[in-house]
């Protein structure tokens, strides 16, 4: 299950809307806790070097900088997100073939509908895709527990208009 703060979900969706119709991509980094799990904390939007509606790729030098930064901060890429702008929020064959962080939550956002978005999360390990629940927690009180939990084709209206 992916547990993620609402403001981070909003930031991912806003990035996807802003770059639409091109695919948007980025990472949410976080420290690894004593129990071995990592919480998503630091939102890092990345440039889609492909600037394409059908493909995304982190710029290779940006990627190097990102990993060095995370290494220095003892962070890991907890969430790796990208958008699909004309298809559903499900990993494509290309997504699966590139997926190489078995501990990451691969988040996909679909912006094909201008009014509502899909926000879904997956584990991709050795080419096998497993969808997982997304639990959104309020930013102000992360210990107060979940306010919303859902799975599959969840949709919601976007707070931020396209720019």
């Amino acid at each position: 299950m992916l547990q993620i703060r609402r403001d981070l979900v909003d930031a991912i969706v806003a990035h996807a809307r802003k770059d639409h119709p091109d695919e948007a991509c980025g990472v949410i980094a976080g420290p690894v806790g004593s129990d071995g799990t990592a919480r998503p904390e630091r939102f890092i939007p990345m440039l889609n070097a492909a600037r394409s509606p059908t493909f995304y790729e982190f710029d290779s030098l940006d990627l190097l900088k990102l990993y060095r930064e995370m290494d220095a901060n003892d962070e890991v890429p907890v969430v790796i997100y990208h958008s699909h702008t004309a298809t559903e929020a499900y990993p494509s064959r290309t997504d699966i073939s590139y997926a190489s962080e078995p501990d990451a939550h691969y988040v996909l956002v679909s912006t094909r509908d201008p009014e509502t978005h899909e926000f879904r999360s997956y584990r991709i390990v050795d080419g096998v895709v497993t969808e997982e629940d997304v639990e959104i927690v309020e930013a102000a009180s992360p210990v107060a527990g979940p306010t919303e939990s859902y799975m599959f084709a969840n949709t919601g209206s976007d707070d931020k208009p396209d720019t």
Partner: peptide, 11 residues
């Protein structure tokens, strides 16, 4: 430094 590319797409 070796890093896996982070990439994908709709197809």
């Amino acid at each position: 430094t070796i890093l896996p590319a982070v990439a994908g797409g709709m197809r």
